[in-house]
Design a protein around this nucleic acid. Structure first.
Lengths: 164, 164
DNA sequence: CTCTCTGCAAATTCTTTGCACCTAG
DNA sequence: CTAGGTGCAAAGAATTTGCAGAGAG
């Protein structure tokens, strides 16, 4: 099951925001908030990791550097990163919220998820995107965002299953 | 926000299982389980409602008939309906699990969701389905199921927004 | 210095579970 | 009769929040 596995993350990186730390610093300054040691650390860890992490995973990574950081601060910081457009929350098969770096314009992607080993692969298919727009239009909707997730078995897990 | 609104449900029905109550009765018998008053009632209410209900909504409906039924029983029954292939859980933007009648083979559909009024519209687009298969194949995945949700504003809410 | 942050623990929200009584088969 | 089911209340799990002391600007 997807539930509680150590996860292998995708090996492909998607378009990233130039300097997320700077964006955060700016946002924080403009709002009269503070650029704290914890926020810096959490943001750094998050962007280094590259995505699809549960808050708990993030905390674990963060604590390797500073084990005083609390879970609440990680939650609060991820919410802040979401507000300033640097991260976005996702929910896949399990009950945890996972964050990934926010997409740039035209950098949107969808997900392939292996329900056996938990691998998450990103993809982008312009034909599908176009058809989605069409479907929305046909139904009178203006689409703000969407999600598409294909759940199944990855190549490795298919082969392992054959052998056993 | 989608969060806590009274919801308007879709006005279109999709392919349904002939006699869900019979399927449940069968399943229950085969497993040495029991076909109780509560299970019957919950299943009836669920199939009459047609989908996208939160467990809480379901309980509310059920209690109109028998207000002794407990939330726990509704949870347990929906799990049972899921096991016997009559219902499937979904999670949209908010934090509630919603159930909808299970899809028949080739009766799959996806969702358009209005984030203003909560309306959910179902659709099916064979071209998109085919492209999804293709993408999966290209990535070495065998797809078991998928979800696609387009979030945006429905026609009515777009017009209301213009006026105000 | 001041106002925001942080860590902690308690509170919330949704969902699951243990248990004593109840009921379908 | 006798599993299995139900209602209730308590437990869990993920996330949020109140508060008093800590720290950024």
């Amino acid at each position: 099951m997807l539930q509680d596995q150590p996860e292998r993350l995708m090996d492909h990186k998607h378009g990233e925001i130039e300097d997320p730390r700077a964006v955060l610093k700016d946002y924080v300054a403009k709002q009269g908030l503070k650029f704290t040691r914890q926020r810096e650390l959490i943001a750094d860890v998050f962007f280094k990791a590259g995505g699809h992490l549960k808050v708990e995973d993030l905390l674990e990574q963060v604590r390797k550097v500073d084990n005083q950081v609390s879970l609440a601060t990680v939650y609060r910081t991820m919410k802040l990163l979401t507000e300033c457009g640097l991260a976005s929350p996702h929910r896949f098969g399990d009950r945890h919220t996972r964050y990934e770096p926010a997409e740039q314009e035209d950098e949107h992607h969808d997900h392939l998820i292996c329900t056996t080993c938990g691998t998450i692969v990103e993809f982008y298919n312009p034909k599908i995107e176009a058809l989605q727009e069409q479907v929305a239009k046909d139904n009178g909707f203006r689409v703000a965002h969407h999600r598409m997730e294909l759940y199944g078995t990855c190549r490795d897990c298919q082969e392992k299953k054959k052998k056993s």
